[in-house]
Nucleic acid binder design. Structure first.
Lengths: 340, 340
DNA sequence: TCGTTCGATTAAAACGTTTCAAAGGAGCGG
DNA sequence: CCGCTCCTTTGAAACGTTTTAATCGAACGA
């Protein structure tokens, strides 16, 4: 900036004014300065800027698993919000590792980002409280957290599990499997809980809603669950499966297809998340849709409110999931004959 | 830091020494200072740090489409490299929009990141040259760029197209469709070129390798291409399709399944990229695998070399793709009967 | 006892902005 | 022609570090 000032024959302060309050500067000088900036290829130094102003122009989202389209969609919602607020968005991936998450959080705090959005490995880690305490606006995404240390945005997973199972009951299923990861993950536990509630409400015997474990929420886990399911004699095998997420459902679908189980005739499948690949599966997947982009946007709005509004109050926003019924439970009626 | 110094009863410089050259400080004072830091919840200010040092501890990757698993895998490779170099990674998503890309690049230059990795919307945009010229290390990922303004890392797409088609010829296919987006995208043009080369090399009539347009590299485009393909009378319909990427292939697979075309018996399908969902499809997809993580890591290594090694020379790294054959071309032999 | 030497600590400058109070100048009315 | 006012421009301080040269003190040898 000093060089620009010299080149334009004005003072440093004037250059700053051209940048920050162009209206305070005469058209002619502004022009001179702008030309000088162009000639010199001047690029504002953001470090100096934020050092001086005490605030960066950046937001950050620490995602749990960048390989899961669900989170990239959430990120996109955040990105839009950031874009309209003219902020950069720092995307970090913890890859479900607490250590990596901690490293990222450390860096972000040092960067003094305006706010941190995070889908934490463990929503109850004291790390989050510490950050909030120290003053960085923080919003937990896709997890609920009792207490009022910070905001959170989530989807009602109990309800999601419920509507998935209700749909299957409606379609006449009386033996259903819940295929889920470890119940240690809050999400999964809630969805299972919802499933059981729906089952009980319909007055069905609780033994007929079986729990099929899967050690992680991945396609591979879904495949292995599929193997176990296929191994059950057909007169006792569940006629439908509710999966803890779409990745599992996709794996299950693949395994079912490979072993000759017809979907949905032999096994109906309901996924969870409604990621794009759910609709794109060979047998399009019925799934519980979460408003992913809205989730992101709402979280970003909250964090910005906390960052700018002194009267901010922490709140827990809960969205409502929605069932999207497709062929994996409805059947493949349109078995059109080929035009030829 | 001033507060820490006061609390510990030492000078500011000592605190800095504790942070940066702990060996120069007596154990007892170091301890005092560390306690003070803990008590006060001191967090280093990265802006000040990088202002003073003239360099940030961050790398950035501007990705073309965060929704495409291919790019998130590349990003993961970069992330690993960044992690080992103890740098933060700024992930940005241009979402294939030049304007957004430009905005991101602007921000990144202002942040003075150590290096920029990018999969650009248009590899020939002068923006990139300008950035390189101004001195920010820059590496183009997954695109080749003639000239030697900066490094690039890519995969040999002509070869990729070639091995895909060779595989189909080997399997006996004599009418093949190339389903691709606009040839304006360099990737697609190269893959098509490779396909034609293989076709010609086998001495097959060029009319029997048909080009099926798709306006974008998405699942939806694949579906619509599938409709067009299914509309062709079976005696003239291609018996196999090579797709410009896996998303298209997945859409095609879905549409084929919906209209009753059996894969691979009626239509064999080869994808491109070998994203995780290709293997996870109901009929696992044969695909041309690109070394995604390696791509990212190599790019990161190059950018770091440029940032730190004064003798750095720009180079264009080209990886070799590899065919992964699966059921979508090999057939679904394992149609196991059910244990029941 | 007095210099020396060496290690630990300190003081001060610098990084590139923003901001605020103050200075400068033009135009105007008296 | 003077004094005001109002708008533009300027100068200097401040943001929180890192770094370098300088200072201080203790231990040691002569």
């Amino acid at each position: 900036m000093k060089d620009v000032a010299a080149a334009a024959g004005v003072s440093l302060g004037t250059v700053s004014n051209v940048l920050n309050r162009p209206d305070r500067v005469t058209a002619s000088t502004r022009e001179k300065v702008e030309r000088a900036m162009a000639d010199l290829g001047f690029i504002r130094n953001e470090s100096a800027r934020s050092l001086r102003s005490g605030r960066t122009r950046a937001l950050a989202y620490v995602m749990l698993d960048a390989g899961n389209p669900f989170f990239t969609d959430v990120a996109q919602g955040i990105e839009h919000a950031a874009e309209s607020a003219d902020l950069s968005l720092f995307l970090c991936n913890s890859d479900s590792r607490e250590a990596r998450e901690a490293t990222h959080l450390g860096h972000l705090e040092q960067q003094r980002v305006q706010g941190i959005l995070i889908t934490p490995v463990d929503p109850d880690t004291p790390l989050l409280d510490a950050i909030a305490q120290r003053g960085t606006p923080l919003v937990v995404v896709d997890r609920i957290r009792k207490g009022d240390q910070f905001c959170s945005v989530a989807v009602d997973d109990v309800l999601g599990g419920r509507i998935a199972v209700e749909h299957l009951i409606d379609r006449g299923h009386r033996r259903v499997a819940f295929v889920g990861g470890s119940l240690g993950v809050g999400q999964v536990a809630d969805r299972y809980e919802g499933a059981r509630l729906a089952w009980a409400a319909a007055g069905l015997p609780s033994d007929d809603l079986t729990l099929v474990a899967a050690d992680s929420l991945t396609v591979a886990s879904g495949r292995s669950a599929g193997e176990r399911l296929a191994g059950i004699p057909s007169n006792r095998r569940p006629t439908a499966a509710v999966c803890a997420n779409d990745l599992i459902a996709l794996g299950l679908l693949q395994q079912a297809t490979a072993t000759g189980l017809r979907v949905p005739d032999d096994l109906a499948i309901v996924g969870y998340d409604d990621i794009e690949f759910a609709a794109a599966a060979a047998v399009p997947l019925t799934s519980v849709r979460q408003p992913r982009q809205e989730l992101g946007r709402a979280a970003a709005d909250l964090v910005l409110d906390e960052a700018t509004n002194p009267e901010h109050r922490h709140q827990q926003v809960v969205f409502t999931p929605e069932l999207v019924a497709r062929a994996s439970t409805l059947g493949t009626h349109p078995r059109v004959s080929l035009a030829d």
